[in-house]
Computed example of a mutant assay.
Amino acid sequence: MMIAMKVVVSALVVTAVTVISKQHPGIGGWIAALPIVSLLSATWLVAEHQPATEISTFLVSVLKGLVPTALLLVLVVTFLRKGWPFAGALGCAIVIWGASSFVLQRIGL
């Protein structure tokens, strides 16, 4: 039952952001950037009685992912503004995101 509730609530959040973004892309982007997924995930962990140390570790890992994710977004925007097709811009940015995530993990950040 808990898995079904997670799927429904999570799908509703993504759908709401998409619907808002169609009418108001700036507001939709801002909402998408909110820590909705990370906080919702932490809430699910609390609901499943995970220890605070596990939730803390999860949230620290979210923090570690912010730099590569910000880089990905900057690259996609830059490539799109240079006329790249979306698939190419996203694909290249994902590769760089993966490489930067790997490097940051290897150096202990």
Rank of each mutant, 00 (worst) to 15 (best):
I3P: 07
A4K: 02
K6E: 14
V9C: 10
V9Q: 06
L12T: 15
L12E: 05
V13F: 09
T15H: 04
T15Y: 08
A16D: 04
T18W: 10
I20D: 02
I20F: 03
Q23A: 14
H24T: 13
P25E: 11
P25M: 10
G28K: 03
G29A: 07
W30H: 02
I31P: 02
A32E: 12
A33V: 08
A33N: 07
L34M: 06
L34K: 09
V37E: 14
V37L: 01
L39S: 02
S41G: 08
A42N: 01
A42S: 06
V46N: 01
V46T: 09
A47Y: 07
E48W: 14
E48L: 04
H49V: 13
H49L: 09
P51F: 01
A52Q: 12
T53D: 10
E54C: 04
E54M: 09
I55D: 01
F58Q: 10
V60M: 02
S61I: 13
L63T: 06
L63N: 08
L63I: 13
K64F: 02
V67H: 00
V67E: 12
V67G: 00
P68Y: 00
P68N: 01
T69A: 03
L71G: 03
L72I: 09
L72F: 01
L72C: 00
V74Y: 12
L75I: 15
V76C: 01
T78E: 06
T78L: 14
F79K: 09
L80Y: 01
R81D: 12
R81I: 07
R81C: 02
K82S: 09
G83C: 08
G83E: 13
W84Y: 00
W84L: 00
P85D: 14
A87S: 02
A87I: 10
A87Y: 06
C92P: 09
C92A: 15
I94E: 10
G98I: 12
S100P: 02
S100L: 00
S101H: 09
R106T: 06
I107N: 01
